[in-house]
Design a protein around this nucleic acid. Sequence first.
RNA 1: GACCCCAUCGUCUAGCCUGGUUAGGACACAAGCUUUUCAAGCUUGCAGCGCGGGUUCAAAUCCCGCUGGGGUCGCCA
Length: 425
Amino acid sequence: MVKVRFAPSPTGYLHIGGARTALFNWLYAKAQGGIFVLRIEDTDRERSRDIYLEEILQSMTWLGLQWDELYKQSDRFDIYREQARKLVQEGKAYEEGPAVILTMPQQEIKLFDLIRGEIVFDAALMKDEVLLKSDGSPTYSFACVVDDALMGITHVIRGDDHISNTPKQLVMYQALGLKPPKFAHLPLIMGEDGGRLSKRTGAVAVTDYKRQGFLPEALVNYLLLLGWSPGNNQEKIGLDAAVKKFSIKQVQKSPAIFSLEKLTWLNAQYIKQSAPEKITDLLIPFLEEKGYLGEKYDRKKLETSVELYQSRMPTLCDFLARADFLFKDPVSFEEEALSRLKESRQDGNIAALAGRLAALSEFSVETVERAFREVVADIGIPASDLVHPVRILLTGKTVGPGLFETMALIGREKTVQRLTQKVHI
RNA sequence: GACCCCAUCGUCUAGCCUGGUUAGGACACAAGCUUUUCAAGCUUGCAGCGCGGGUUCAAAUCCCGCUGGGGUCGCCA
């Protein structure tokens, strides 16, 4: 039975690289019908924080990566000490004060990596490895090996940056007389500048992407595309479909640069192709935080608004800025909109339109459009001459969805009110 | 610096294992169509096998070297 683990340390938020490692582990487990272990590596008691632990669990859940088993290394210190003591007794490690240090053998270490093939190291070049620190806590490497072995981990899938750790850990398995798991080292994700992914090059925490209005499906899909391809020129793929196609051997060997642009495009695809009800649900917390939703609001109307903007909101947050006029009164005008309005000189015609709209017995997309067309026909000007200034008056913007849909959404009262408002240019 | 990994359009990638493709797709960019604007959508275009040697009738694909990029070198994880 395949058993894999994702082993974050709660010394910071779950970041994008960690999320991808978790994702590939999860995928492999699901694809093989195995078990996905989440192991919290909190041996550094100084830097570990409960809030980070909570945040990591939340991010994993948000991404849809449910774990089957959960462990904390801080609960297992006795086990590491026991194993270290055994190695000292057998003469494979030595004590230096309270610390325990493993003797490196003079030999060649061969690692067979599932992604890269055989890699050979010379243990003679490696320094003796600390197993237990002076304070009695285990080092990362040692705790990791003991846990992987004792928990029955069959495959260690982790970042490339651990490749040089592997020979030392292989020596530990050898010393402990335990069978090492199979290893697969994933290429790292790089920032847009080609260097290490860092806060400077953009958001790194999964939570940041959530806050910025990305859908978990889009983020997971994008992460999947970094280093793996479903084939058949397919790009949009859900977790379930990916499980069916996933193979660790197909994973790319070279590092990939994280592209916010492509992630945003994928996010737009997911938003556009989702049901309006779903996007509305996701939007509600954002709208509430912004104070855009009152005590009671018209859910149906909100869904209609969302539907109108689904192809116009690459991220959920874009809705907040682009459709703010639906929630704010009076509207706030963009600078560009104001100067265009000034140039249009349609005040008289707009007043005529307002009067016409006010007299409408029914205020719907159809009746509004008919009235509007009649007004411009009477005056004898092209529709667009009036469309643009009207949109600006109603929304404060030069761009937006179809004008008649927008008017119907705003409603008769506010539409007329905004058309007759005094705008100081 | 030592050790290790990697190398297809600007970016993500298919193709590489099992040599023979007009080197395919996507993002971005450009143009056009559509249109009341902006998006979306559709069409088209631009753009790539890092370099040098081999092996072979034939190399993106196999081998070697170089160059370039990345990673590791903590009683951090």
